[in-house]
């Protein structure tokens, strides 16, 4: 077991070096995708299937965006002149820093023996108190749901920030190719896949409290589905253009819904207090509260991730600046 982990870690390190050192940007991005994939396998091995799922779908979105965005501007700096003095001093600092950090990290509890304090209580009481047998989800959406609000806000912030930054930008030349979509074969396959992806995303989100997954993973899966549809059918196709126009608002509505769920709990006593009863264990309704929250997050993340993708990879977002305005 440990050997596998070590092997994967070394693989990750090698992949990271490749990603940074390969000159071709496309290869770099693909290498980073491979690193992400390896990481998610590692997460799986380390007993973190939720993280593994999320990691893999996030990696898909990230790599897609990176490829779409950087493919057209891949101009590696021509000169590779490096300042020897800077590199040498950087190296010395890095080595010192590494050994200092290593000197501290050896004092951590030994690997494989976590100092579980609150977590033990979560494991003991979580399923009973929240109705979610997936304790990670119990923590994420009930014990520490306030963090999740912050997390949802972070992604919203980043998306809105990206929208704000690319507003009024020149529409890239190859975007017209995106408008057209891809070949018939791809379209046909996509049509088949799309339904599956959507159902899978929904399932991942809905059953997040029982099985690995949750609103985030499901949301990113759904977003991946829309991304696929956009790429295959073209940006002008109905699903892409309709949902594209709505996406940032779906994001806001999802976040708002999540906040409202929290506020409803406040009426009963505490901000974020559960206000729905627990059902029978191991059933969908065992934690209806968490399901609701997962759905809100699902909408939020789907909207957000898709809006981000569209803004960065396809569209010039938002209306053209009005006359006389400063962009």
């Amino acid at each position: 077991m440990d050997v596998t982990i070590y092997g994967l870690l070394v693989f990750l390190i090698a992949g990271a070096i490749v990603a940074l050192e390969v000159r071709d940007l496309l290869s770099s991005v693909i290498a980073i995708g491979v690193v992400g994939l390896g990481l998610s396998i590692l997460f799986l091995l380390l007993g973190a299937p939720d993280i593994a799922i999320t990691q893999v779908v996030v990696e898909v979105i990230v790599v897609t965006v990176l490829i779409r965005a950087t493919a057209r501007i891949s101009d590696e700096p021509a000169s590779r002149r490096t300042d020897r003095f800077a590199v040498a001093s950087g190296l010395i600092v890095a080595v010192v820093l590494f050994f200092l950090s290593a000197g501290a990290l050896v004092h951590l509890p030994a690997f494989g023996q976590p100092a579980m304090t609150v977590s033990r209580w979560y494991l003991e009481q979580g399923p009973a108190l929240t109705g979610a047998t997936n304790v990670v989800m119990a923590i994420l959406l009930d014990f520490r749901a306030y963090d999740t609000l912050g997390e949802a806000t972070v992604i919203l912030t980043a998306i809105v920030g990206a929208l704000a930054i690319v507003r009024g930008a020149e529409r890239p030349v190859d975007a017209r190719a995106t408008d057209a979509g891809m070949s018939l074969v791809v379209r046909a396959v996509t049509r088949w896949l799309l339904g599956l992806i959507l159902i899978f995303g929904l399932a991942v989100a809905l059953f997040g409290h029982l099985t690995p997954g949750g609103g985030f993973a499901g949301g990113v899966v759904l977003a991946c589905g829309f991304v696929l549809a956009t790429l295959a059918f073209g940006a002008r196709s109905p699903p892409a253009s309709i949902f594209g126009r709505l996406s940032s608002r779906v994001d806001a509505a999802g976040a708002l819904a999540f906040l409202l769920i929290a506020l409803l709990g406040w009426c009963g006593g505490h901000f974020f207090q559960r206000w729905l009863d627990l059902g029978r264990p191991f059933r969908l309704e065992s934690a209806t509260f968490i399901v609701l929250q997962n759905v809100a997050i699902l909408f939020k993340v789907t909207g957000g991730a898709f809006a981000g993708f569209l803004a960065l990879a396809v569209f010039r977002s938002g209306p053209a600046p009005e006359e006389g305005e400063r962009s």
Binding site: G90, V93, A94, V96, L100, A104
Partner: peptide
């Protein structure tokens, strides 16, 4: 960035 890492290194050194 280099200043930051240098600062962190010095801080770590001080604390060690």
């Amino acid at each position: 960035l280099f200043w930051c890492f240098l600062g962190l290194t010095v801080l770590l050194g001080v604390f060690f």
